[in-house]
């Protein structure tokens, strides 16, 4: 991915240690295993929007009290990409997605969506995006079909178009038989599917999906994958957050790894993986704690 604008080459401050992963030329060198101790990447000017970038975030920052959830994050998502936002629990993925989609006001930073500032012209941006949040708070006293109709009318779509698309989406996501049940009575997987249908209803150009495959059965998962792949093949952009490496490796062509509120690596999947597995690279970058041989020695012995 052309995730970052070209940077003048900088000599590393120290020679890399022997077990360091290969460094990409467009990513500043990071000390392996301790990337979070490194100073944050210097902010780059947003500059004019590039035609090949769908989403661009610069110096995005959000604090909740004393906790810094997102800490000067930079991110570029190429247009038409299937982009995976990876990170351990609490890394700041959900907060980032909420800020990028205009649902949470950042303390600092800028977000451009197809060249439009999310916080300067929200209606123009929100018309182009579809969002599937992680917590799935919906108007759950509406029935499945009612929810889709409601969402379509909120978005200003013509009533007939809404009815037509809602029927098709319910059919594709295998929800036709439960369209007359209230969403409050749906299983978690069904809620996810109806929320995804609502996010697709207005044919957005960029889809933001927070853990979209969580609690989804394999059959539905395959359907969703097919729909999303067709979406990107037609020029749409998908940004999904997950910590399931296998899923991201299977679906995404670009990834960014987030830890402690910062992007610690980003680019095309193969480049980020660096010839190894994405999981190894991920664990290396976020700094996995090894379990020493002496630890938990009692585990497995009888408790009687």
């Amino acid at each position: 991915m052309s995730a970052e604008p070209p940077q003048p080459p900088q000599p590393p401050a120290e020679p890399p240690p022997p077990n360091a992963p290969p460094q990409r030329p467009d990513v500043p060198p990071q000390p392996p295993g301790a990337p979070l101790d490194a100073p944050p990447e210097p902010p780059r000017a947003a500059g004019p929007a590039r035609a090949d970038v769908a989403v661009s975030a610069r110096s995005l920052t959000k604090r909740f009290g004393a906790t810094v959830a997102v800490d000067g994050l930079h991110l570029d998502v190429p247009r038409g990409a299937f982009f995976g936002l990876l990170g351990p629990n609490g890394a700041g993925k959900t907060t980032t997605l909420r800020m990028v989609t205009g649902l949470l006001r950042p303390d600092a930073g800028q977000v451009l969506l197809e060249g439009v500032d999310v916080w300067e012209d929200p209606p123009r941006v929100k018309d182009r995006i579809g969002v599937l949040p992680e917590d799935l708070q919906l108007f759950d006293r509406l029935r499945g079909r009612e929810l889709l109709t409601y969402t379509g009318l909120l978005r200003g779509l013509d009533a007939e178009v809404v009815e037509d698309r809602a029927g098709q989406l319910l059919d594709v996501f295998d929800l036709t038989s439960s369209q007359d049940e209230m969403v409050v009575d749906y299983s978690h997987g069904m809620r996810k599917k109806v929320a995804l249908a609502a996010a697709l209803l207005h044919s957005p150009r960029v889809l933001f999906l927070d853990e979209p495959f969580e609690a989804i059965d394999p059959v539905s998962g395959r359907t969703i994958r097919t729909v999303l792949q067709r979406f990107t093949a037609d020029g749409g952009t998908v940004v999904l957050s997950s910590h399931v490496m296998a899923l991201v490796e299977q679906l995404c062509d670009h990834v960014a790894i987030v830890a402690h509120g910062q992007v610690v690596d980003a680019g095309p999947l193969a480049e980020v993986a660096g010839g190894g597995s994405l999981e190894d690279r991920f664990v290396h970058l976020v700094g996995a704690r090894e379990v020493g041989e002496g630890a938990l020695a009692w585990l497995g012995s009888s408790s009687d």
Partner: peptide, 10 residues
């Protein structure tokens, strides 16, 4: 659930 309204930007 108010996010459903907010995300439309209307």
């Amino acid at each position: 659930a108010l996010w459903v309204h907010e995300v439309t930007g209307a």
